[in-house]
């Protein structure tokens, strides 16, 4: 309980920062911090594997991908972003309030919430075995999807076949 009490406000603060920061790079870094803190929360709950994977995938890959794409695109104007804030806030609240309401409703009135025993230990070997036996179709579907994405990305990245033309350089 104590890790949750310490980490949850931090995660919320970082997430709020990710939304509030006017500069896209700041927002992306705050998002990275949020994801890293969630990874710490997983570790504190005893889910080592998911915590480390969260760190490697989300902080190491997704956050870097976001900042990298920010670099090669031209971000919008900062002042405009700040000016737009009140309207954005209304839209944001309109989107989040229903979700929050549903969550609050289930937390207060939901009777079928079971407390999970503290630190359910599942060794990495068991996890792997489960993934490749009972959950094999899901893994296979994901593998096919990712291969398709990979091929698509390679097709996009391929240089178009055109004859060598150096006249513009000279």
């Amino acid at each position: 309980m104590i890790p949750l009490l310490i980490l949850a406000p931090l995660i919320l603060l970082a997430a709020f920062g990710a939304v509030w920061m006017a500069r896209p790079v700041h927002a992306a870094l705050m998002l990275a911090l949020t994801l890293a803190l969630v990874a710490v929360l997983y570790l504190a709950l005893g889910a080592d594997f998911i915590g480390l994977v969260q760190f490697a995938v989300y902080v190491g890959a997704v956050a870097v991908l976001i900042v990298f794409s920010l670099l090669i695109t031209r971000p919008g104007d900062e002042a405009e972003e700040i000016e737009r804030r009140p309207r954005s806030l209304v839209t944001g609240l309109f989107c989040t309030l229903p979700v929050l309401a549903v969550l609050a409703y289930t937390a207060v009135f939901g009777s079928n919430i079971k407390l999970i025993p503290w630190q359910p230990k599942l060794s990495i070997a068991e996890l792997g075995e489960m993934l490749f036996t009972s959950h094999a179709p899901a893994v296979l579907a994901l593998a096919v999807l990712l291969t398709a994405v990979m091929i698509g990305a390679a097709l996009f990245a391929r240089e178009p076949d055109k004859p060598q033309d150096d006249s513009s350089e000279k």
Partner: peptide, 25 residues
């Protein structure tokens, strides 16, 4: 001595990219 030592190594190693980006930016 971690059960997931190798994963830990790569997970913390991935932080380097972010710090290089921060330094550059």
């Amino acid at each position: 001595s971690l059960e997931l030592g190798l994963l830990f190594f790569f997970a913390v190693g991935s932080l380097t990219e972010l710090s290089v980006f921060i330094a550059g930016w």
